[in-house]
Amino acid sequence: MAKKDYQIYIDQRLCKGCDICVELCGKSVFTVSDKINQKGYYVPVPVNASDCSGCMICELICPEMAVVVVETETIGETA
């Protein structure tokens, strides 16, 4: 069975750097950024997106609706 691939987007305008996604991701997809963004927040980076299992925890729990998880095959249809 082919493994599904996911792309993870973090909305730079919305993220406040609470790192809840970083902490709760079971696959350690995110890493804490060392770069501060325009608004003064350290926005996480999905460095290991290839490990994403598509569980959706990060998207659902994000308090800013800043995280979006998209199945790679469907990108063409929704984007």
Binding site: I61, P63, E64, M65
Partner: peptide, 30 residues
């Protein structure tokens, strides 16, 4: 790319006024 459910929000008011890490936003999200 932005969240497809932002269509339900008054997006001109975002980001929210909630503190970093506050659960209110998670309730809104869900």
């Amino acid at each position: 790319m932005q969240h497809h459910l932002l269509k339900y929000l008054r997006t001109e008011l975002l980001p929210t006024a909630f503190c970093t890490g506050c659960g209110c936003g998670t309730v809104l999200n869900l």
